[in-house]
Design a protein around this nucleic acid. Structure first.
Lengths: 156, 156
DNA sequence: ATTTGCGCTGGAGTGCACTCCACCTCCTAC
DNA sequence: GTAGGAGGTGGAGTGCACTCCAGCGCAAAT
């Protein structure tokens, strides 16, 4: 070991830039008990060892995928003992399942949007519009498409 | 036409059940200008023609994929004229791109969670735990894993 | 015709996740 | 030593998207 006592003094600012979380959010997460591994310098400043930073990344994943802060805290505060291992794993598996659902939903939604786009292109091509996409009032518009009562549409 | 004057009297309750949006949310969306095609019965009750319902589904997609209500309104209130066609299409394309990003992000996040799960299984197998997943205090736990200063970890 | 209840409206209230603020301390540069 | 700025704390404030409510009218059932 040449100089292995390198204390890597990673402060809150660095972590903020590293993670994209604001300074306030980092401090708030910590108060809320989401960030256990953060240490303090002599003068009371936050120091983030590598493990803390990795932990923050996990918390970000959980939050980003829609887990409420309260639930993240529950997860975080589970003990490290083996009794909790099952619970932790179960929770992670739930999250994985939730993420998969979200992905599936987004694929559906994406398909809908794409379909609308195609529909629009098609309509534009032939200079029409359709009740599906007309909006409320078009004050500046020349009222190009005041639909009368055309109500014989197919389906979705 | 045998009896084609069927007015399909679809009320707010039916739409609520159909879409999963609450009664309040449906009314609120309408006040906010997100739902243009809703009509009223003689006595002032909301009536949702098929086009309105389809429109609601589109709004749901936009909201679900993270578009703020204000932006949905902007989209909705674009005129139906051709001048707006480009804007509408552009907006939808932006949304499609945003959804793709979200899917990509979720795939990443899913990978992280899966990795953690595997890691957990591995640790459990050998009866260990690691600083990555220890939490704060485990009051009822027998304090099974009080890490001393083990700080020589690999990466991620 | 009366009861029962659904639906309407405007406005107030809620929950969540931050974000801002004032005031203080500590550290760094000069 | 002193000035300036980063960082710390507790608490208040904000923005968003609903959600709840009181008071009223219309409707369907009896």
């Amino acid at each position: 070991m040449t100089d292995s006592t390198g204390p890597d003094p990673v402060g809150i600012r660095a972590v903020s830039e590293l993670t994209g979380l604001s300074l306030d959010t980092l401090r708030w997460y910590e108060r809320e008990g989401l960030l256990p591994l953060v240490e303090r310098s002599d003068g009371g400043q936050r120091r983030y060892p590598p493990a803390a930073i990795r932990f923050i990344r996990l918390v970000q994943v959980l939050r980003r995928t829609g887990m409420p802060v309260d639930d993240v805290r529950d997860f975080v505060q589970m003990g490290s003992g083996l009794e909790w291992h099952g619970a932790r794993t179960a929770l992670l598996e739930q999250r994985a399942a939730a993420i998969e659902e979200q992905i599936a939903q987004l694929h559906q939604d994406l398909a809908v949007v794409r379909e609308k786009i195609a529909h629009h292109r098609d309509l534009q091509q032939r200079g029409l519009d359709c009740e599906d996409e007309i909006a409320a009032a078009a004050p500046h518009s020349g009222g190009a498409g005041q639909r009368p009562e055309t109500n014989g549409d197919g389906h979705a």
